[in-house]
Amino acid sequence: MADLPKHRPVLARAAYAGISEAGVRLEALAEGHLLHVLGTIEPAALAAELVKAGFTNSSIRKAGFRQWFVAGDEPLAPAGLDALTAALAGKAVVMDQSHGRVRIGVSGRSSRSLLSKGTAVDLDPAIFPEGHSAMTMVGHLSVQIVRTGDDSFELTVLRSFAESLWDELKHMAASAEKDGGL
C-alpha cells in the first residue's frame, strides 16, 4: 500500500551523523533487531537457541531478573523470530522491541568520563567489564548501558527518547571540550 509510512531510522538525519569531540565518538548504530526475552531460561541455553534460530551475531544483555535483551545489527527475520519463540515455549517469552528502541555507540579514550557525567553506574573496567550491562538513568532518561570494548559502550533507549539522549550526550561532550577535556 502506497499510503503506509515507511520505516525511517530515528537518528538518520545529517544532524545525527557520527561526531567526535573531546576524545569521544558518538554514532547511531544500525537499528537491526532487539528482542526482549523474559523467563527461566539460562543465558547459555538462550545463546544455544539463538544460534539454532539464526541469530548468530546477536549479543545477550541482562536487563533485569530473568530478563535479557538480544541485540544485533541485522534486520529481524520473521522466520527466525518464529523459530526462537517456538524453541523457548514454556521457558521464556520473546517480545520484538526492534522498532521501539534505538542503540547509540559511545567510544573513545574519554567515553567512560563522558558517561560518568550522566549516570551513577561505576564504569571502571574492574567492576563493569566488557559484556556487562546495567539499566540506569542518563540524566532523566532510562537507558541500558553495555560495555562493548575497552573504551566503547552501547546505550539502548526508547525510540521516542533517542534524539533527546543524543542531544544530551553531544552537549556533555561539547561542554567537556570547552572546559578543557574530560
Rank of each mutant, 00 (worst) to 15 (best):
A83V: 07
L29M: 04
L84E: 06
V93A: 14
F65T: 07
A45G: 13
T56N: 04
V51G: 07
P43G: 02
T40G: 11
N57V: 01
T56W: 00
A92L: 06
T85A: 01
G72R: 02
L35Q: 02
A30H: 15
L88Q: 08
I60C: 00
L46A: 10
H33I: 02
F65I: 00
F55E: 09
A47T: 04
V37H: 09
L84C: 15
E42P: 09
I41R: 01
L29C: 12
P78Q: 11
A92Y: 06
A92W: 08
W68F: 14
L88I: 09
A77R: 08
V94T: 14
L76R: 03
V94A: 14
E31N: 15
V93I: 15
S59G: 10
E74C: 13
I41M: 04
A79C: 00
K62L: 02
S58W: 13
N57Q: 07
V37F: 06
R61P: 00
L81Q: 13
A77H: 04
A71N: 03
G32L: 06
H33R: 07
K91D: 08
T56A: 15
A87D: 01
A86S: 10
A63H: 01
I41S: 08
A92K: 14
A86D: 11
L88S: 01
S59N: 01
G64E: 14
K91E: 02
P75W: 15
A87K: 11
L84W: 07
L76E: 06
A53R: 14
A45C: 04
E49I: 03
L34D: 10
R61F: 05
R66T: 00
L29Q: 09
K62D: 11
L46W: 00
A83E: 02
G32M: 02
P78R: 04
L34W: 13
A77W: 09
D82A: 05
P43A: 06
L84N: 13
G54M: 13
I60A: 04
V70P: 07
A30L: 11
L50F: 11
V93P: 03
T85D: 03
R66A: 11
E31T: 15
A77S: 05
P78H: 03
R66G: 03
G80T: 14
H36R: 13
S58Q: 05
T40L: 12
P75A: 00
A44T: 10
L81D: 12
A89D: 07
D73G: 02
E31S: 12
E42L: 08
A77Q: 05
V37I: 09
I60R: 00
E31L: 01
A44P: 01
A92M: 05
V51L: 08
P75N: 09
I60D: 01
I60N: 07
L88H: 05
